[in-house]
């Protein structure tokens, strides 16, 4: 009895999660005379073709490309840094506790505070550069220097403070459940540290790394709060989107929403598919070693 009640609640929750998203996907195919709400005035791809031409003065496609590029870099760094740090935390080192608390703190310190801090930091760096350039009389700095803030400096850092805690926490969960005897076996067989990592540890943790990569890309691609004061002159896609919510009053914004959601879903499905594929492969290639004699 309580099962059906709770299952009903769960179904409603899923509807609550996906329903609104579904409506804007439907409405993005609104006819050319249609508005932001139902009823549909026919079905067309008018708003998508309008979107292809760009949204007003904003070069939305440039922002789109920037966000994807940044997302990929954040993804790569998140995976590499998280795995390395995850390995480090398995050993004892001075400051491990402090580092762990700093990482967790980054997750719960309000994003606006982090963003403001990074913005300030880069402004102060700019002031220093200008002052030094001026006193040394370097004309290129005095005349042309604008700012050190940018997508691949301040915004990249801001994104990493958001994605790395997730990456590290996942690595903690992975290594807490990791059976050390596999590594010991490798070492007994004469594998070096690197060999046992490359041929034993890495294949075992690979599916989790895809999870870390998924967090890295999607959280960066959609990141808004931490980029807000730290993006520099060029905006990321979510920043442009936030601006558009107040200016665009046509289904064009739904079309844009459908496109970015499409990108997110493609990445998510790709990652999940990859995890499944790795599992299947492991089952196929796995030996019966360790299964006992029976």
């Amino acid at each position: 009895m309580s099962f059906y009640l709770l299952a009903g609640v769960f179904a409603l929750f899923v509807l609550f999660l996906y329903g609104p998203m579904g409506t804007i996907i439907v409405l993005s195919f609104q006819g050319s005379q249609g508005g932001l709400t139902f009823p549909m005035d026919g079905v067309s791809t008018f708003w998508f073709s309008k979107l292809m031409e760009g949204v007003g003065v904003v070069d939305i496609w440039a922002a789109f490309r920037r966000s994807i590029r940044l997302g990929l870099i954040v993804m790569l760094l998140t995976v590499v840094f998280s795995v390395a740090a995850g390995l480090a935390f398995r050993k004892r080192f001075l400051g491990a506790g402090t580092l762990f608390y700093v990482v967790v703190a980054s997750l719960i310190v309000p994003s606006i505070v982090v963003s403001l801090g990074i913005g300030l930091e880069f402004r102060l760096i700019d002031d220093q550069v200008r002052a030094v350039g001026g006193s040394l009389g370097v004309t290129s700095i005095v005349e042309d220097y604008t700012t050190s803030m940018g997508l691949f400096t301040s915004a990249l850092g801001a994104h990493l403070t958001w994605t790395l805690p997730f990456g590290l926490l996942i690595m903690f969960a992975v290594f807490n459940r990791f059976d050390k005897s596999y590594e010991e076996a490798a070492r007994d067989l004469g594998a070096s540290d690197w060999q046992s990592f490359r041929h034993v540890v890495l294949p075992i943790i690979a599916p989790s790394l895809i999870g870390v990569a998924l967090f890295g890309f999607t959280l960066s691609y959609d990141e808004l709060a931490r980029s807000s004061q730290a993006a520099g002159d060029l905006n990321t896609l979510p920043l442009e989107l936030q601006g558009l919510t107040t200016t665009v009053t046509t289904p064009e914004i739904y079309a844009l929403g459908t496109v970015t959601t499409g990108v997110s879903f493609t990445v998510i499905l790709l990652a999940l598919g990859l995890v499944l594929w790795l599992r299947r492969r492991r089952e196929r290639h796995g030996t019966d070693a360790g299964q006992g004699m029976v």
Binding site: P20, M21, T23, Y221, D222, T245, Y254, T261, F265, V267
Partner: peptide, 10 residues
């Protein structure tokens, strides 16, 4: 893993 802004305007 999808955009917060889009989820809001939806």
């Amino acid at each position: 893993w999808t955009s917060n802004v889009i989820r809001m305007i939806s």
